[in-house]
Simulated scan of single mutants.
Amino acid sequence: MTTLKAFFMKNYWRFSFSAKNAVKSLLAVFAVIWLATEIAAFFSGAIGDGIKANWPYFFLIGLLWTIWESRPRLAMTERVAGKDATIEIRVGDCFELDGALVIGSNADFRSAGIDRASLQAQFADRYCDSSERLGTMLEGALAGEPHSWRTTAGGRVKTYDIGTVARLDAGGRVAYFTAIAELNEYGKAHSSPGHIEAALAKLWSYLAHRGGMGPLVVPVLGSGLSRVGVTRLELIQTIVRSFLAACEARKFTEKLTIVIHPRDFRDHEIDWEELRFFLRYACKYYETGVRASDAARGAGALKR
């Protein structure tokens, strides 16, 4: 997503644009121009008069600067206090960013017949050539993992615990497929906030013991077809809190990037400024033992 496109989204004007900051920016520009005019007039009346005569152009410069300062910020980054780790939240496409991908999956790790818009299907198309090959790779990666059997209309299938991780290296891209949802009798995925929290805890543990140390790219897990009954803002906060708790025990990456799909940024009420305050205070007070949720409430109070 480009900054220009974000300018025309109602959620930007509703949640991110600040009229107060825009006015402050405009007044600051005019103050600089006024000061420059006074200084120029002190040394040369002709220069001062020239500036005054062309005030519409300087007014336009002030407006352009204010627009630039008020532009949508589509990424934010904070360093975790006391740790060599940063958390970035950005609007974009997971596949365009460097780092190992985290992809939510169903507990059966079924790859056939899944929605073509899902990240799992997109990964198959980009790096595995087909869903069938992805299924074969997942089966190999899960060899030896604890599982049970369940009966479906198509026969008996293996199912794994929530939080089970399958590491794939396909087409030069590493991805950690993580079970975050269970399939019902109709083949539809269903998850819950508890499932997301459990899956994240097991994912961080897996990465600490069996993963690499490179950057991680994580979508807003549970925001797609998993039918989790909470907002995307709450899901992002859950990922941040879980990551910070895991950082306290061990180090497994130096950068976590949480990616919000442009469609979600456009269609759903994601308060960018509230998210910025949450991330800043959660990372800042992590070292002092203040819970991220408590820090977020404090940030909200200061914001108001």
Rank of each mutant, 00 (worst) to 15 (best):
A170P: 01
F59Y: 08
T77S: 14
F265Y: 14
E69N: 11
P146I: 15
R90P: 00
R266P: 00
V290A: 10
F8C: 08
T66K: 06
R241V: 13
A22E: 10
F252D: 13
R110E: 13
N54Y: 07
G229I: 06
D264K: 09
I196E: 05
V165W: 01
A208Q: 12
D49P: 00
S16F: 04
R79N: 06
L64A: 08
E145I: 11
G212N: 06
A46H: 08
A31R: 03
R291L: 03
L63C: 13
G82D: 03
Y176W: 02
M9R: 12
E248K: 14
G113T: 10
Y176T: 09
E287P: 00
K251S: 15
A249Q: 13
V230E: 06
L101S: 01
A181E: 00
L35T: 09
L35E: 02
L27S: 09
S223K: 03
W68I: 10
A85Y: 04
K83E: 11
E248N: 10
L64N: 01
F123L: 09
T77M: 10
R227I: 04
V228D: 06
G224S: 12
L168W: 01
L279Q: 09
E132C: 01
A170F: 05
V220I: 12
G212R: 03
M76I: 14
S111N: 06
L74T: 08
R232M: 14
G154P: 00
V259A: 04
S131R: 12
Q122N: 05
R90K: 10
R71A: 15
I47P: 00
K284Q: 15
S226N: 07
I236P: 00
L27F: 11
V23W: 11
L4D: 05
D108C: 14
V259Y: 02
A6T: 07
G104H: 03
L221D: 01
D108G: 05
E139Q: 11
